[in-house]
Design a binder for these strands. Structure first.
Length: 214
DNA sequence: ATGACGATTTACT
DNA sequence: GTAAATCGTCATA
């Protein structure tokens, strides 16, 4: 009788994998792969090395704080597994995975990736967004929420996409998680406006990984 | 209709 | 370290 070893091959995440609280999902995503298939068939993949949890209506740092619901953040109120992509600062995109239960506006912001597949293509995509002369070092390719969106060509067209079903954007557990990762926790970035919530330890990253932002 | 500002990045002093 | 870039969104009127 053939027995498969579940962890021996890559496994795509299903809706159930996203259906948990943001502060549970955020650390659980570390070490997983965010995979993007470009229209030409090229496969880009990055190991998730930094995440932030946005808990819901009570979280004053969240776009859904105090029950704010609008066309922009509508995806946050959808089923777990949707992509929430928003445009900010007049020029940047950020990518989240919606989580929790349907109707609860929780999400996890992906803040940084370590390029695993297609790094050269990622560099070309990043170059197309800047006028930099020297080649972008690999540690700068996806080490920030807007950088990773450039590197994987993620934009508003992906907002509301179902990560559990979309053919071109999904999360995958790698065949093996190399070294047992040491995880660090700290306050979220860029949410100083959120009062006491700004200090909450809701950001997780792989300790010592050079692809983490800043 | 108007204005303030942002879950950022980059360049420059 | 500080500041510019740049525009969609939302709150207020």
């Amino acid at each position: 009788m053939t027995r498969r070893t579940p962890a021996a091959r890559p496994a795509r995440w299903t809706r159930d994998d996203f259906a948990r609280p943001a502060d549970e999902l955020a650390p659980a995503l570390l070490g997983r792969l965010l995979v993007r298939l470009l229209p030409g068939g090229e496969r880009l993949a990055g190991r998730i090395v930094e995440t932030e949890a946005y808990l819901g209506e009570e979280d004053l740092a969240s776009h859904s704080a105090r029950g704010r619901r609008s066309p922009r953040n509508e995806a946050m109120y959808g089923p777990p597994g949707l992509a929430y992509v928003f445009f900010t600062y007049g020029m940047h995109h950020c990518f989240n995975a919606v989580c929790g239960r349907l109707g609860e506006p929780a999400a996890v912001l992906i803040r940084a990736l370590e390029p695993i597949e297609g790094a050269d293509l990622m560099r070309a995509l990043r170059d197309s967004h800047s006028r930099r002369r020297s080649p972008i070092p690999e540690t700068d390719l996806a080490s920030g929420p807007a950088r990773l969106c450039q590197a994987l060509d993620i934009n508003r067209s992906h907002n509301g996409l179902d990560l559990a079903r979309a053919p071109d954007l999904f999360v995958e557990s790698p065949a093996a998680i190399d070294p047992p990762p040491r995880v660090a926790v700290g306050p979220r970035i860029g949410v100083a406006y959120a009062g006491a919530w700004a200090a909450a330890p809701l950001r997780w990253w792989l300790e010592g990984n050079p692809h983490v932002s800043r």
